[in-house]
């Protein structure tokens, strides 16, 4: 594998390789000198056509811990706003000998276009494209889930661990969420069951073909308690497009309220509470949920750096992300 564009085409073995490597990278973050020489002299470009401070600094931190040089190229306003075209930007980066391009774009499919266009011959990492995919987010979520699994099962190590048998409930704006899509493909590849919960207006037409259960009631989805519940960010402007009537109604029906957290506590559940951030406290997630001991939000942020180090390392050090030695039945 030369690029990381989606989790749909990520094999079981490749995903585990990324996660196992990420575990090793995590150890670096715990040292006083948080740096490896692996990518010294290599240049990683963060090409962000859409603002995302969190994702950009996570990639930047990851690249720097591997000793790569990092260039942040904020190209707000692509050909959408009559600025420089994606093609010219890509060719410019190629002329500057970028060794890898991390791209964030509001237009679905842009990373794939970049990878397949022939405009630039460097590995491309999708850092979120439109409402399509966000593969490194899914990888860091999977890393968080298997840590949670190891913790609850009393395992010492997560090495080689998948998500077989886990049940993950993903709640919110599935229609517009690249995280929901990438999570679904990756979690199911790793053996987990996924339930989506949303008002019917925020589910895509065609979801029936996806390998997931769909329910409209959050309370129904949380009983019995799942291994994890992931709350997706809901943008307030959606209500102006009549996806739901008011923020209050949304929070009541699909928010992780203090009452719902209390119900998990009462049931003695080990359910982890996840959120890709940034959170809308009081809308999709209450402070009681966000700040509870169940919350893995900061673990996710920490794991994000490790996963991105792993991806950059595997793509740039030339190691194959698709080891052929141990084929798995779920491989395509």
């Amino acid at each position: 594998m030369r690029h990381l564009l989606s989790t749909k085409d990520l094999s079981y073995d490749a995903a585990l390789t990324v996660l196992d490597t990420a575990d090793q990278m995590a150890a670096v973050g715990e040292r006083s000198v948080k740096k490896l020489p692996a990518l010294r002299g290599r240049t990683v470009v963060n090409l962000f056509f859409e603002d995302s401070t969190r994702t950009r600094i996570s990639f930047e931190t990851a690249a720097k811990r591997l000793s790569a040089d990092v260039i942040n190229f904020s190209a707000k306003g692509s050909s959408v706003s009559k600025g420089e075209s994606l093609k010219d930007t890509a060719q410019t980066l190629a002329a500057m000998s970028a060794d890898a391009v991390v791209i964030r774009h509001s237009a679905s499919g842009s990373p794939q276009q970049l990878a397949e266009s022939g405009w630039i011959d460097a590995p491309v990492v999708n850092a979120g494209d439109g409402t399509h995919e966000h593969p490194t987010q899914a990888l860091l979520d999977a890393m968080t889930l298997r840590q949670h699994r190891a913790r609850t099962e009393g395992r010492e190590s997560t090495r080689g661990l998948d998500l077989e048998g886990m049940h993950v409930v993903i709640v919110g704006d599935v229609l517009h969420s690249r995280v929901a899509r990438s999570d679904l493909w990756l979690f199911t590849t790793l053996g987990a069951r996924v339930t989506f919960v949303a008002p019917p207006t925020l589910l895509p037409v065609g979801i029936a073909d996806w390998p997931c259960r769909v329910v409209f009631s959050l309370d129904e989805a949380l009983d019995p308690a799942p291994d994890a519940v992931m709350m997706l960010r809901v943008q307030r402007e959606r209500m102006h497009a009549a996806f739901f009537p008011t923020a209050q109604e949304y929070a009541r029906e699909w928010g992780l309220t203090p009452e719902r957290v209390a119900a998990l506590d009462d049931a003695g559940a080990t359910t982890a509470i996840m959120h890709p951030g940034p959170m809308n406290r009081g809308l999709e997630i209450s402070s009681a949920a966000a700040d509870s001991p169940r919350s893995t939000v900061l673990d996710q942020v920490r794991n994000g750096v490790s996963v991105r180090m792993s991806v950059l390392y595997l793509l740039l050090s030339g190691d194959d992300l698709d080891p052929t030695s141990t084929p798995h039945p779920q491989e395509r």
């Binding site: 399509h132 037409v205 065609g206």
Partner: peptide, 18 residues
């Protein structure tokens, strides 16, 4: 709208043309 609304648009995250 960017493409036919259906299972492919759902997967690709492109706004559907129903």
């Amino acid at each position: 709208a960017q493409m036919n609304e259906g299972s492919v648009s759902a997967e690709l995250g492109l706004t559907g043309w129903p």
